[in-house]
Design a protein around this nucleic acid. Structure first.
Lengths: 344, 344
DNA sequence: GCAAGTTTTTGAAACGTTTCATAGCGATCC
DNA sequence: GGATCGCTATGAAACGTTTCAAAAACTTGC
């Protein structure tokens, strides 16, 4: 199948290639009659312009990359929706790269994105040992905006949520309910979100004179439902049992709750539970989850806007946006709230 | 920032552009010494080859498009993971397009994908009035594989799950438990999946002499938790109440269950519920959901493989793969199974 | 040390678009 | 009726790579 080019269109419409190009890019400068005949020629031929050739002459790629840690988490799905919305509004496509956790793999994906000369990259997480790769990319002129993580440098955009504050909210809530023997089910501490949530949590509990039990200070590798279940068993096996558990995300919390209830314990009577992210399913749990809500959609949307700003606006100023988290109280902490009432 | 080209590399390494290109594409034919010096030059310069120029000379785009209906549904997230896995294995990127439901919007995205000359497109759903757009694209040589929907034509690849069989499984299970007044909470019937699940369900119930109550034959616009809650209220308001409810996906089922329980009813004693998709959260529900499982990951993976086959293999044969669904029985239908026991 | 091979490198053409300086063409004005 | 002006259309150069026929540089064997 011979490839259809602007030249075929020109020939068919009886004009020069330059005019066809003008019709495509600056229709206002071509005579209405000419425009119409070019339009007709394109339709009849089924012409679709070639972005590669276009890019070669200076046009920017209409795509951005989104690096996501785990799409299994509905939180990131929501972030994606925000990104997609903002990108579409600006006429951009979104290339989603789901990290498998393998840094080599991540590097390969980044390399492909860079070869494509995408307009920019949104990164929710940087694989071990790959931060140099990112900084080199940035040096070469590729805009990179951090998503859900605050940039350490003033020279890079980032959109994040205050995780220290989130951890504090959880801690204060539990301590306020009188709990003083606490458990923490956290993700990898070298992930700044987890470290921050922990430190906020500790600030609050220390302030209230409560204690994070050493046996119940758990760090899991992957923040999944399954890992939460395992963590619950670990907690039940401890010498001294906590009365409240803070989980660094809702998947962990759902797993913890599920395992505890299956083992015959009551939530919140025996164990109060606080999750993080406030995913849609938190409400649907056996005992609806109290959770620290993050504005996931806005996170993604704002991040994409910043990225596109950096990519297209000469006068772009770097900026570190930080959203505030918010505690949503439900039955799993037994505060005086609706137990399982429909949302509507 | 001046753009770095193969020519800069050539100059630095003291060779011609042709040699650099060879080093990049057929390293085995260039002398080891030369190769090394070119490598060195690239590293020092931080050269990244330009995919656009490459494509222009005939190379295929290393990207495929994935059109998804609603990413909010964990089922599609899982499909995505399958696609991503297969794509990565083959060195491809995945451009995800989340349909907002607006057909114009869909057309714009498709146009962009086609301009990019992506290697192919995986479509889980075709927006209203856009099927012509797809067939024209195919005529122009763009491979399109249907995902989660069976192709009507022998000339197009598709990977799907037998929805009629799935509906039948649900119907047989409920009738087998003695239910004879049934409700159906379905999605838009012009979506073939929904129509098929319905027809399979009816086949089974008719065969067993059970009745789908007219008042409880519900069709919702969007298959979300919220819509499920609304449907439950509708069912409760009906003159004659069913004793069992089949929902066309798990989000609907979770919403139905949630609303019923909040209204003081018992599941499965008052209402048995069967969902569809068996998403991860089905287990975590207040009453764990009986659900028709679809091999989501395999669906995506196989679809991507087929697409890439069609895109790269001269001798590709079109094929319609159909997976079989499977019923996973849990507490929501009160069959003799574990109530809320941990998975592990 | 030379012919005949073999391995490696070269350089120009091609890919499909955009851009831009220039040319063409009417209309308008004295 | 000729100069001037504004609007349109033109066509060649440029973008960064790959390809491929041809040239150059080495190896052999004798």
């Amino acid at each position: 199948m011979k490839r259809l080019t602007i030249l075929d269109v020109a020939e068919r419409a009886g004009v020069s290639v330059g005019t066809v190009s003008n019709a495509l890019n600056r229709p206002e400068i071509v005579a209405p009659k000419t425009l119409a005949s070019i339009q007709a020629a394109m339709d009849e031929l089924g012409f679709v312009r070639n972005a590669a050739a276009r890019q070669l002459t200076g046009a920017k790629s209409p795509a951005i990359g989104l690096i996501v840690l785990d799409i299994d988490n509905p939180f990131f799905t929501e972030v994606y929706r925000g990104v997609e919305t903002a990108a579409n509004e600006a006429g951009y496509l979104v290339v989603v790269c789901g990290l498998s956790g393998d840094p080599t793999h991540e590097r390969r994906q980044l390399r492909l994105l860079e070869e494509q000369r995408v307009a920019g990259i949104l990164a929710t997480r940087v694989g071990k040992g790959n931060s140099r790769v990112y900084s080199q990319m940035r040096k070469r002129g590729m805009p990179v905006v951090l998503l859900d993580r605050r940039s350490a440098s003033r020279n890079q955009c980032s959109v994040s949520v205050d995780d220290v504050a989130g951890g504090r909210l959880a801690g204060e809530h539990l301590c306020g309910l009188g709990h003083d023997r606490l458990a923490l089910v956290n993700g990898p501490r070298d992930w700044s979100q987890c470290a921050d949530r922990r430190s906020g949590f500790l600030t609050a509990t220390d302030g209230a004179g409560a204690r994070l039990l050493a046996d119940a200070d758990i760090e899991v590798e992957k923040m999944t439902i399954g890992a939460g279940e395992a963590a619950a068993h670990h907690i039940l096996a401890a010498a001294k049992r906590p009365t409240a558990i803070f989980c660094a995300n809702d998947l962990l919390a759902l797993g913890v709750e599920h395992a505890l209830i299956a083992a015959g314990h009551r939530v919140p009577e025996d164990f109060a539970i606080v999750g993080y992210d406030d995913v849609a399913f938190a409400t649907m749990a056996f005992v609806p989850l109290t959770s620290v809500r993050q504005p996931a959609f806005e996170l993604g949307q704002r991040g994409a806007q910043q990225l596109l700003g950096e990519a297209t606006d000469e006068a772009h100023k770097h900026e570190q946006v930080v959203f505030e988290p918010e505690l949503v109280i439900r039955a799993s902490t037994g505060a005086e709230v609706e137990a399982n009432v429909p949302a509507s």
